[in-house]
């Protein structure tokens, strides 16, 4: 049970999906999050400050996980690559954000000394 494991290991943060938990990929998914129609490859590259090769590599990781979909079309006889977040990606990203927020809050509480760590009795 998620709740039980959280009580047993409050700092495990198992929900911090490694696929999202990478600076470039976090930037990519965040850029796409508010774009229901998706973003063109060139726009995404500009927004995330990545090179073609880097962006391609990270998009491949996200696509393989099923978190984004990549569509290749021809617009005005020019190839246009559009990336969108999939429903699965959206769902997992929401979970990731929840976990990240919790990690930050716990970190803040620990820093102010309001979290007490009890040794395990087992």
């Amino acid at each position: 049970m998620a709740g039980d494991s959280r009580e047993e290991a409050p700092f495990a943060f198992n929900g911090l999906d490694r696929i999202f938990h990478e600076r470039a990929r976090l930037g990519i998914v965040t850029s796409l999050a508010g774009q229901p129609e998706g973003l063109a490859f060139a726009q995404l590259k500009r927004m995330c400050g990545l090179t073609d090769g880097n962006l391609n590599r990270h998009l491949a990781v996200l696509e393989e996980a099923g978190f984004i979909s990549i569509h290749k079309d021809l617009t005005n006889r020019r190839p246009l690559t559009t990336c969108r977040v999939t429903p699965l990606g959206r769902e997992r990203f929401v979970e990731y954000l929840g976990e990240l927020e919790q990690a930050l809050r716990q970190g803040a509480r620990a820093a102010t000394g309001s979290v007490t760590l009890r040794p395990r009795t087992t």
Binding site: T30, A33, G34, V94, L97, G107, A108
Partner: peptide, 21 residues
Amino acid sequence: SDVQQAIAQIADIRAQLAAST
């Protein structure tokens, strides 16, 4: 603080997601 700023950014991302979901 940095943490509060990060939490506020998470709320912004959630709002963006909400507006497009």
